[in-house]
Design a binder for these strands. Structure first.
Length: 245
RNA sequence: AUAUGUUUAGACA
């Protein structure tokens, strides 16, 4: 019952975290199998409330005497650290992960590539992408979205376009998020003509434009003062009966 | 009751 409450709790006071750690240890001592998932749930909740130091204590418990942390444990914590702006610490945990023979998966890499891109360090994202190749970790559409977004943010539009073309090589086909991301990058770089061409391309590829697509295009041409184009995208959006999800 | 991606005017802090 105490255990049940812990797993359903929305937030924790620091005293409660101490109690939780003791409870999990006691359960293990009494012969219960306490799986990594229960630690993962607590780590996720603690990160969401900004208590990354407490989350780190749980990871340490796992490494010392608890269930072996799995790829979800590390990815959860890495994501939580990044969201709190602790990207450096996230990379330290990434190293800890490897040192403990836990192989990062696509999601682990995607999380890191996303956050380095956000803080303008896509160079590091590209290194991670290379590392994925050497570790035979297959990139997916999320990987490419993060790379394209990060490259555009760093002003490296040509390389972003290259990544877009590389999708086919990887056996992937661009989805609406990939198109939206690239159109946003082009628009913010003043290349709204190309963004408009992508709208045609996505349609001919059978990818349905959504509300974000049109918001992105309208924002792009709007900032260039092309009110006529903004209206035409708006009209097209209405005619297509786009609805927010 | 566990982990990753795209657009933004305003208000709040």
């Amino acid at each position: 019952s105490m255990f049940y409450k812990l797993m359903n709790a929305k937030d924790f006071k620091s005293g409660q975290v101490r109690e939780a750690r003791l409870l999990l240890k006691e359960m293990a001592e009494r012969g219960w199998i306490v799986g990594a998932i229960y630690y993962n749930i607590l780590i996720s909740k603690l990160c969401r409330t900004g208590q990354t130091a407490q989350a780190c204590c749980l990871l340490e418990d796992m490494l010392e005497e608890g269930p072996t942390p799995d790829v979800i444990t590390y990815s959860t914590f890495i994501s939580g650290l990044c969201k709190g702006g602790q990207v450096t610490e996230a990379f330290q945990i990434f190293e800890t992960m490897k040192a403990n023979n836990c192989a990062p998966n696509t999601i682990t890499y995607n999380t890191l590539i996303h956050h380095v891109g956000k803080v303008g360090r896509i160079v590091d994202g590209c290194k991670l992408f290379e590392e994925m190749k050497t570790t035979h970790t297959r990139p997916d559409l999320v990987t490419f979205t993060c790379l394209i977004s990060g490259l555009c943010k760093a002003g490296r539009i040509e390389e972003a376009l290259h990544k877009f073309y590389d999708l086919k090589t990887e056996g992937l086909s661009a989805d609406v998020v990939i198109f939206n991301t690239l159109m946003d990058g082009l628009g913010k770089a003043g290349r709204t003509e190309e963004a408009g061409e992508l709208l045609s391309l996505m349609k001919s590829n059978g990818v349905r434009p959504d509300l974000v697509t049109y918001n992105t295009l309208i924002d792009g041409v709007g900032k260039e003062g092309r009110i006529d184009m903004a209206f035409s995208y708006f009209e097209e959006m209405k005619s297509r009966e786009i609805t927010p999800d």
